[in-house]
């Protein structure tokens, strides 16, 4: 019997593949699919009283979501903040990666490690340190006041959308660096030289060659930043105030002090679907756009 199994295993690629995948498959099933299924089913229930849930099927929670202006506007705001964060991160990380990929000859790895050095401290600590920088008595405000440039502290810096955007951009920049660097580093420099040789200026070469060829990295970076930042609730909770609140803070409240599990589950599901749709649209249009310019 063992012999039969051994010879079957030796010949069957799918058997090998599944046995190698099994640790990950088990983990994903236990830690992702089951909770996700639970959340999905809860979104079709009704919270009757503080402790009691009616388990009969209804889509009323989804209708509730769209009837509450607050939830819809928070969803839109979450997506908007994430978009801005993604855009600003790309804009700051891309030139850095470009420089390392094409102009740094030795110790590229060292540069990358040094750039990601701040990210070795905990996420929470970094969020708190932004409080010290942006606060009403923080580094920026007190130095501007001491320099006589301001008489009152800038209030939009702290407990605002701006604070959330600045903090998230900084927090996720490291994750954009790697995919961007990898895709830029893969570009054969002679392609760039060839474009210059064929009469294109530096800027034109960037638009026609470098940018389209680094597209996989750009899409990767967009997804890596956009997806987690839409759902981030630590930064808006600590630095957002009322102005910078995002949908995830509401979802947390529904599962916590408000104690409306079904509405929380429905909001989370809607957010999941929104992220999926936005992701698909963004990757598709980015691809089309670059095809047009090249």
């Amino acid at each position: 019997m063992l012999q039969v199994w051994k010879s079957f295993y030796a010949r069957s690629d799918p058997a090998k593949a599944y046995s190698l995948l099994s640790p990950a498959l088990i983990l994903v099933t236990l830690a992702m699919l089951i909770p996700l299924g639970l959340m999905l089913s809860f979104s079709f229930f009704t919270q009757v009283s503080f402790t009691e849930i009616d388990y009969s099927f209804t889509v009323q929670r989804y209708i509730d979501f769209f009837q509450k202006n607050l939830l819809v506007s928070l969803l839109i705001k979450s997506v908007k903040i994430s978009f801005i964060v993604t855009f600003v991160t790309l804009l700051t990380a891309y030139p850095v990666c470009y420089y390392i990929a094409f102009y740094v000859k030795k110790n590229k790895m060292l540069w990358l490690v040094l750039l990601t050095l701040p990210f070795w401290t905990s996420y929470l600590l970094r969020v708190f340190s932004w409080k010290i920088i942006l606060g009403t008595k923080g580094v920026i405000n007190s130095s501007l006041i001491n320099a006589g440039l301001l008489s009152e502290p800038l209030t939009f810096l702290m407990y605002s959308e701006t604070a959330v955007i600045i903090t998230l951009t900084h927090a996720w920049a490291a994750f954009a660096l790697l995919p961007l660097y990898v895709s830029l580093d893969k570009i054969d420099f002679s392609l760039i030289e060839a474009a210059r040789d064929l009469g294109l200026s530096r800027l034109e070469t960037f638009w026609k060659i470098t940018l389209p060829l680094s597209l996989p990295g750009i899409i990767g970076a967009i997804l890596i930043i956009f997806i987690p930042t839409v759902g981030d609730y630590v930064t808006p909770a600590l630095l957002g105030g009322t102005d910078g609140r995002m949908l995830s803070n509401m979802i947390q409240a529904y599962f916590g002090k408000v104690n409306n599990l079904p509405l929380g589950a429905a909001s989370a599901t809607i957010m999941l679907i929104t992220v999926a749709i936005v992701t698909i649209i963004v990757s598709y249009t980015t691809k089309k756009l670059t095809q047009r310019i090249s």
């Binding site: 054969d188 002679s190 392609l191 030289e193 060839a194 474009a195 060659i209 060829l213």
Partner: peptide
């Protein structure tokens, strides 16, 4: 170019 550098 040595490696032809055809735009892929």
């Amino acid at each position: 170019f040595q490696n032809y550098a055809i735009f892929p």
